[in-house]
């Protein structure tokens, strides 16, 4: 464990808490993409299948359980409890255009052709593009609530911090996972436009609006 990965995990946890707080406090999931949240739940489900079989540490097990529980909790809030506030008209990104190519790629490019490894690879590839429906939704509505922009900033920062973690692990532990690094870079690059808007607007106290 290193400081980059720890702050990355904390940023990830913070993002999930911010989203739950937003939905719970405003009793609304307006502006949140249910499709992205469904893909995040799929990411955690396919990545943490070894939760039972492969004990690594208390931290690892606890965080995995929190991520799985909170992702399904978010789906419950969005599609059951506050379903009436789900903005399906703006959440129109075609998930199959992401899930199908990612599934195909995970069969073609992986470290080991075993079920667990292919599912892990699928989850890594899927996570790198899972935010696209959310970013697409914001581009359609042209704006995002401030707390939703904080959620996205924390979520985007987590994988950027993981890139620093991989640099650290490469130089100090000789650890290198090409699949995780490439997918992590793609994932982080997708946030660049949002990061620019967030830093130039939200940090100046303005609402996050996209140029018309």
């Amino acid at each position: 464990m290193n400081v980059f990965r720890l702050t990355g995990d904390i940023a990830h946890l913070l993002a999930i808490i911010l989203l739950l707080m937003k939905i719970w406090k405003t009793r609304s999931c307006a502006g949140v993409s249910g499709k992205s949240q469904m893909m995040f739940a799929l990411v955690f489900t396919t990545r943490y299948l070894d939760l039972i079989t492969n004990f690594i540490s208390l931290y690892n097990t606890t965080m995995k359980m929190i991520f799985i529980a909170s992702s399904y909790g978010t789906l419950y809030l969005m599609f059951l409890k506050f379903r009436a506030t789900y903005d399906s008209n703006h959440d129109t990104f075609r998930m199959e255009f992401l899930v199908v190519p990612v599934a195909g790629l995970s069969f073609l490019v992986n470290h080991d052709f075993s079920p667990l490894e292919i599912l892990w690879t699928f989850s890594i590839y899927l996570e790198s593009v899972a935010i696209l429906p959310q970013l697409f939704m914001i581009s359609k509505t042209g704006e995002a609530e401030t707390i939703t922009s904080h959620y996205l900033f924390a979520l985007g920062s987590y994988r950027a911090l993981y890139i620093l973690n991989w640099v650290y692990r490469f130089y100090f532990e000789g650890f290198f996972d090409l699949i995780a690094v490439v997918a992590g870079c793609v994932q982080t690059v997708l946030y660049c436009d949002f990061f620019y808007l967030y830093i130039t607007k939200v940090w100046k106290g303005k609402k996050l609006t996209l140029p018309a």
Binding site: R5, H12, D50, N60, M63, W120
Partner: peptide
């Protein structure tokens, strides 16, 4: 390759 054992990242 990153085998199962060193998948210690979340």
């Amino acid at each position: 390759s990153s085998s199962q054992v060193d998948k210690d990242e979340l």
